[in-house]
Write a protein that binds this DNA or RNA. Structure first.
Lengths: 157, 157
DNA sequence: CTTTATCCGACCTTATTGATCGGAGATCAT
DNA sequence: ATGATCTCCGATCAATAAGGTCGGATAAAG
């Protein structure tokens, strides 16, 4: 339950990668193209392309057209929140269907609904969580499995 | 994004209702049957039935068979967490696909994945949130719109 | 033993997600 | 300028999950 989509996953990986390339890790300042990311993480190229286009449209990254082109962060990593990334791909946060009902719209259950208010509180808490965490906070991480040595079997976790 | 399913919604409404009936609000101690809940909240009867069966199977409520039968809470409202309810319907909490990978299972991206650890932290925070909130905390709520008077148009919220 | 209600599993329909394809437009190197 | 490369954009398709339905089996109250 409460799973985020693969697209959102890909978006996070891509942004993490771009941020890593731009600041220090590898050839700083370089722009990153779609294919490089797709190959690095085994993501379907065309699907990743769409994800990156969406992120560009939402001004999280900037696209540079033509050969030697690619993507770069639109602002620094600590100014990009996880909430912004996820909402950019999956739309606004909404625990329940009636989260964003405009005035006059009601779901079929609204009339007697006693659970809307507490659910909105939960939603607010999650929103706060995702807004307080930035791309920067995801950086500096080491890969989870560095080398899959056969001898290491059973020592997992 | 991060929306819970309608079934989960229905489960919360139903449990809230059963709890309200059992403790004080209306004819205390009475069991509640499916049809009563379905009509009260405009929920499709058969679908709600399935939801309640699932909740019974997961020992959140007890089913009483036969005429005058129905459902009752298996324990008191403050001992039923929101997490238990949601997981009962939607399966275990998992922000990402790789949340519950057993040893030896890896998603295609795992090899270079830098985002798994931070995502699991977010997941833990949400789990904590949902585990610390109980059905009891959802009680005592007043309906959001008591009577939809035509004169009240525009005074919404 | 009939009525009422839960129980259980199979089924269908629709919406969302994941993934693919084909071309248009921009940019750089030559 | 011209071609190669790359982003951009829309349409499309398949797989999966969600929402909802149906029919019969089972158990208890009257």
């Amino acid at each position: 339950m409460l799973k985020i989509s693969k697209k959102a996953d890909y978006a996070l990986m891509a942004l993490q990668h771009i941020a890593a390339v731009q600041f220090g890790d590898v050839t700083p300042g370089r722009v990153v193209n779609t294919k490089e990311i797709a190959e690095e993480y085994n993501i379907p190229l065309e699907l990743l392309a769409k994800v990156l286009q969406t992120l560009a449209k939402n001004a999280l990254i900037e696209s540079h057209n033509g050969p030697k082109g690619g993507y770069a962060l639109a602002r620094r990593a600590h100014q990009i929140t996880i909430a912004q990334i996820l909402e950019s791909i999956e739309g606004p946060l909404g625990i329940t269907d009636c989260s964003h009902e405009k005035d006059g719209e009601f779901c079929m259950q609204r009339e007697n609904c006693h659970i809307r208010t507490p659910l909105l509180k939960i939603q607010d808490s999650i929103a706060q969580l995702l807004n307080n965490m930035t791309l920067q906070d995801m950086m500096g991480g080491t890969p989870l499995i560095t080398i899959q040595s056969p001898a290491a079997q059973g020592v997992e976790r």
